[in-house]
Nucleic acid binder design. Structure first.
Lengths: 196, 196
DNA sequence: ATTTATTGCTAACACGCGTTAGCTGACTAT
DNA sequence: ATAGTCAGCTAACGCGTGTTAGCAATAAAT
């Protein structure tokens, strides 16, 4: 009988959620089966249900843990007494680093949230909408203070957030530049695109 | 007996492919069923097979028709005798307009190509890789000619291409700015990010 | 050492999937 | 009018899915 290995402070459920993130990223939520997941975990499919309620629960956990981290960060950044451009750059760098270091989760949250079921779906969409509005509001402040070019703020948000999801390609590329270089390049291009 | 309606010069297969694009975008390739598609077309699922070979064939058609349009465009742009920045801007505007006016197809090609099966999969990935290299080469020329900032060209490509796929959010947003405004904003931010 | 809770297993379920076979009705061309 | 092709239908197939029930083995607690 092949037990799921766990280090201290990592529950078996966490192991499953983590492997699920990898699998959902690779195949997509719908195409990844519980039998695939079971194999990745080293156990039979039915055994997973001793630790989780359903396949969808895995998606909830992933999507909302990511969303919560971003919401917490924007709370923090909004409260700081710095210029709008500095706030934008801070958020940008946070996004970039999340995408670099929590790739699987962030990617899945980004691409697979459609498969959430209500009420989680509406909830997630709302959080997303609000987050983007708050981000846009920072940019609009920047425009008013003439730190930022006169551009459509929602469009700028959309560009930044989607550009960041391109880090996916960096992860899968064979000849990677370093994470630090990647971060600097992205900030240079994106912040450079907003200013002056 | 409910026949598929067709205007002149639009085959029944084209009708199916178009509806498939919409459905694949909405639900994802795996989650969209042939029964869903049949309903959208106004016919029974089995009847679809008088016009198409398989579900996957629909994905092939979509992915490669999009890919071919981009390849053709980059052929054209490379051949022109204009500056690197002008080439970049041309490609950028083409991408933007494709995403605006052929939203469903382009989106599906972008997000769902993973579900292609070999040999189509490898083929598609190759085309994609080569396209990006050619795009990066143009940027590198721009850097050498000091039209473009000293940045990592592959990273710049990745940012531009992914930023454009953010137009998805524009399509789904309720308060849209005009397509022309969207295009100008995106070009301003992205080209602005590369230059100076 | 014995009990209790945890974590695994096998077997099976109901269901939705892509697809095929075989048939019927409806346009098209002679 | 008649023959032939096209495009639809119903029924059904085999398969993979998420999930449950019931039981066995292991680990934890007494």
């Amino acid at each position: 009988m092949a037990r799921i290995k766990t280090d201290k402070n990592i529950s078996r459920k966490d192991v499953i959620v983590t492997k699920a993130a990898t699998l959902f990223r690779e195949k997509g939520f719908k195409a990844a089966s519980m039998r695939d997941l079971a194999e990745a975990v080293g156990v039979e499919a039915a055994s997973l249900y001793n630790h989780i309620k359903s396949k969808t629960e895995l998606l909830h956990e992933l999507c909302f843990s990511v969303a919560n981290r971003f919401l917490q960060k924007i709370d923090e950044v909004e409260a700081e007494k710095i210029t709008a451009i500095e706030k934008i750059e801070k958020l940008l760098r946070f996004h970039i680093n999340e995408m670099i270091h929590h790739y699987e989760e962030v990617y899945v949250s980004d691409r697979e949230w459609k498969h959430l079921a209500d009420p989680y779906l509406s909830n997630f969409q709302n959080q997303r909408r609000i987050y983007r509005k708050r981000f846009a509001a920072i940019i609009e402040t920047g425009i008013r203070n003439q730190e930022v070019k006169k551009i459509d703020a929602p469009t700028a948000v959309l560009i930044m957030l989607h550009a960041i999801s391109g880090i996916e390609s960096w992860h899968r590329s064979t000849q990677k530049i370093s994470a630090a270089e990647l971060e600097e390049n992205m900030v240079t291009i994106l912040v450079g695109g907003l200013t002056q």
